[in-house]
Design a binder for these strands. Sequence first.
DNA 1: TACATTAACGACCGATCGTTTGTATATCTC
DNA 2: GAGATATACAAACGATCGGTCGTTAATGTA
Lengths: 210, 210
Amino acid sequence: MTHDGRRLRGSRSREAILERAVSLASVEGLDGLSLGRLAAATGTSKSGFFAHWRDKEQLQLDAVEWAARQWAESVVAPALRAPAGVRRLFALHEARLKFYSDGVLPGGCFFFTVQAEFDDRPGPVRDRVARAMREWLEFVRRQVAEAAALGELAGSVDPDQLAYEIDALGEMVVPHSRLHEGHASFTHARRAVLQRLRALCPDPALLPED
Amino acid sequence: MTHDGRRLRGSRSREAILERAVSLASVEGLDGLSLGRLAAATGTSKSGFFAHWRDKEQLQLDAVEWAARQWAESVVAPALRAPAGVRRLFALHEARLKFYSDGVLPGGCFFFTVQAEFDDRPGPVRDRVARAMREWLEFVRRQVAEAAALGELAGSVDPDQLAYEIDALGEMVVPHSRLHEGHASFTHARRAVLQRLRALCPDPALLPED
DNA sequence: TACATTAACGACCGATCGTTTGTATATCTC
DNA sequence: GAGATATACAAACGATCGGTCGTTAATGTA
């Protein structure tokens, strides 16, 4: 009846499980999330996981992969529709903030949670998380360098430096907005980067005033 | 023989346990830390904990208290030796960075880890952590306001805004420095705040050039 | 000295953890 | 259709979880 091949059916439930895992892990972390709770949340049995993954660590690694793809589609891709340079750089910052304020993930940010969880725990998961963060920072750095090459940033800008600032100001919105209710941290994060870029940009018309 | 009163002895081991708990929690989190491992690390039995605390949550609450005191003594107090104003503000930032780079805690920062762990988990521990972070941010905000009142910051500065920036740029050093080895993030965090303050301060002699 | 209190312990509890085993069923290959 | 494979499950495993219980030794109070 159903035309699900076993492989199609398998990869569908695999994707559904990973989506749930990323969602739950944004709240409780990848290790804090237990297979029992994940099974309950997906309406399956926990022993069924072992048909898809050798052990919990393999599932964690695939969850990081899934989250990186989600980030690329939800944050990076929309920002790439803005014209290259300082406008794209700020669009990237705003797309991240929108990702957070839209509540795409219940915990706000998978990578913030998982980064805090694994930054001191050597192993494959930590390495995979570190790679994802490195690639993200490298991408931001490239946007900075491109803006500078287009003459949209004062010449003396260090791309590594500015990329760190943009990332830090954006990422700390997650704990601030969740710990102290209210929208203030979003305003602060947005304005911090906006004013920083406006101060560097020779053409103020490229960026909103406020 | 020993002049330990039972109360003195009790409060001594209580403090020793809390110090260990804060240290371990900076790595694995307050919930990730299990009583069994804490007992092993302190050379005691886990059942002994229940002579000092009703349950794990009470120990967690006291650990937050202990960590807040450590932060006040190791970061806030040294910075207060600098003259009020923009110099104290920057001294505060540098004291925090020194706290991290000195490796006072094996996980870098107790509050970063615990914040990420509890920002989505309602309960007394979350409330206590939120209060500690609120008090810290309020303290930074007051230093900003004082610097502005002394005429050491351009008049248009919003203390909430600048306090958020200083905190975010300082705190994100923790995951960055641990995930990507190297000292770069310390340089970035230091220079970001320094250049921001220098741009606002009418008297550049108050701050180092670089 | 008599008695209460405290610190600390070993042994054990039910629950949950990640994982293994065995089994049933559906799907693909031939 | 036959045999291999993939999906999924229930049941159970040993380990560990937070927590309880009963006890011992030391210290305090009377």
